Computed example of a mutant assay.
Amino acid sequence: MEKDTASRHRPVMLDRCVDLLAPALTRPGAVAIDGTLGMGGHTEALLERCPEARVVGIDRDAQAIALASERLARFGDRFVAHHATYDDIAGALAEVDAEAADGILLDLGVSSLQIDEAERGFSYAQDAPLDMRMDRSEPVTAADLLRDADERELARILRVYGEERFAPRIARAIVRRRDSEPLSRSTELAELVLEAMPAAARHAPGGHPAKRTFQALRIAVNRELEVLERAIPAAIDATAVGGRIVVMSYHSLEDRLVKHAFAEGAEVDAPPGLPVIPDDAQPYLRLLTRGAEKASEDEALANPRSKPVRLRAAERVRPTPASRARRAA
């Protein structure tokens, strides 16, 4: 089973993630948090590269935790699983009785496990029930959302979360369709989106026209941006001085949140021209990447799911000044 799990998943920018985190994980008892465990590829590499470290892997998907735990069993108590959304950094630290983390990794978006299993309903390319829940114990599916949300809310979801310029047309088509029969299958939704588009937009570059609609519904069903808005400040607050945070985003909405939080922590919070910068105005983060890094051309060819990735990393250089912590809260 361990070999099968590894073969099903190719971690994105694996070496770069480990290279960025490893310098903070050299001391005995160092703690890393893999906030998006998935099938455990990044965690496995960290445990192999950093023999002094323990890793707590967070995932909201119980199936992912089961597969990753089996894969990582050979590391004994150096790996601990935590079933939660990735903003529960405090809960992950409590699993190993730690006050702070030395390294935190967040690989955002949908996992290979969820995409590849047709019955999860994440893909417009495979016929399946419109589910899209990362945690199947949650009550609301994509089909429920499409059935119950009004036209205005559907248009907002598609416009904001999918950056879909034809959101009003698609929302109107969904409401018309459900008057006779609710949408319940992924292929039904993909066909409806295609039909709702202007003819010229149906063959535009950038993949299937339904891609943005599926992204938007997935984000809404799983409240992904709400979780991320809590997770980034929680991760920064939980990182020890000298510790590092690596975040991989897959669309501009995620990347914008990460960029803003890192930039805020890395800038001087004082008027320009002061002869001496007060301690509480000093940066508390140091950026480790220049802008957002992308996967190499070779990796993008070998693993198409790495093409949209944007990686940002930062190092904690001092505690957050109380005045800035209150403002962020």
Rank of each mutant, 00 (worst) to 15 (best):
K3P: 01
R10V: 14
P11N: 11
P11H: 07
M13G: 05
C17S: 14
L20A: 05
L21E: 06
P28F: 11
G29T: 05
A30E: 07
L37F: 02
G40T: 12
G41N: 04
G41K: 07
H42I: 06
L46D: 10
R49P: 05
V55C: 12
V55I: 15
I58A: 08
I58E: 03
D61T: 09
A62F: 02
A66D: 13
L67F: 14
R74K: 15
F79Y: 15
F79C: 09
A84E: 02
E95R: 15
A98I: 05
I104D: 11
I104A: 11
I104W: 07
S111M: 12
S112T: 14
D116G: 10
A118R: 14
F122K: 08
D127I: 05
A149D: 11
A155E: 14
L158C: 07
R159H: 15
R159T: 00
V160W: 01
R165S: 12
A167N: 03
R169W: 02
I170Q: 05
A171G: 04
R178G: 11
D179P: 00
S180Y: 01
E188P: 09
A190E: 11
V193W: 09
L194P: 00
A200P: 01
G206R: 08
A210G: 11
K211V: 12
Q215V: 03
E226F: 01
E226R: 07
E226T: 13
V227N: 13
L228H: 04
I232T: 12
P233K: 14
A234F: 10
A234H: 02
I236K: 04
A240E: 15
M248E: 13
H251F: 09
L253K: 01
L253C: 03
K259L: 04
H260G: 00
A263N: 12
G265Y: 04
A266T: 09
A270R: 02
P271R: 09
A281Y: 04
L288V: 03
G291M: 06
A302R: 14
A302Q: 13
N303C: 02
K307Y: 01
R312A: 07
R316P: 00
P321K: 08
S323N: 15
